[in-house]
Amino acid sequence: MSAPVLLEARAVAKHFGGVKALRDVSLTIRQGEVYGLIGPNGAGKTTFFNCMTGLYVPDGGGFVFAGAPLVADAPHRAAERGIARTFQNIRLFGNMTALENVMVGRHVRTRAGVFGAILRNGATRAEEAAIRRRAEELLHYVGIEDCADDLAKNLSYGDQRRLEIARALAAEPKLLCLDEPAAGMNGAETAELRVLIEGIRADGVTILLIEHDVKLVMGLCDRVAVLDYGALVIEDVPAVVQHDPRVIEAYIGVAA
């Protein structure tokens, strides 16, 4: 693989009191790949996500994204730099319509301020129209354009997942981080999700995928990292990871 490195985690550590949630995790994500992050419950996957997107400040180490370090404790900065994410327990703006949710997602890529809003000058109106157009396109892209005017919280579970992805894509990310997107989905929905993720990758967005569905991860990802007790066990292509004894041990336990 010769694709350039997009994200590099350097010895990232995070502890909550005495619990070491992340122990010096180092990994590299290359441009254009789908990178899977798996591990048993409580292995530190979401903590890793939160450190990377600036919701947590790491206690050690740091991230280099697209050639420059990521500032800790500045989630909006991470989004500006091109990291967008979804949440394990869907976090939509429930009382806004689906369309509005995606429109908010355009926030980092648009400029209009208070004065623009009040004066509603030509530039602001043009920007507003562009935001709306792009949001409609994205709803169409993830396949929920029929729900544009429904409140987000009234969408079905699967559509909420899709809407969250559309909202994340609205920020034009270089790296899209999906936190257990297939959780709670049935087989058919998971298959549809897989098509969607492959489409996003084909559009040139690098994807970091946290997932429990091992079949999905192994089928979709170019490379996979396994976390256990906050430490990196292995980082390699799915075929190797699948048969690594340490991975099997982490998931199933040691043979007696």
């Binding site: 997107t53 600036g54 919701l55 989630p75 909006h76 991470a78 989004a79 500006e80 967008a84 994410r85 949440f87 976090r91 939509l92 703006f93 429930g94 009382n95 806004m96 908010v104 997602g105 926030h107 980092v108 909202r167 994340a168 609205a170 920020a171």
Partner: peptide, 10 residues
């Protein structure tokens, strides 16, 4: 609606 999600989208 959700401050954390608002931060995460930038």
């Amino acid at each position: 609606e959700d401050e954390i999600a608002a931060k995460a989208i930038g």
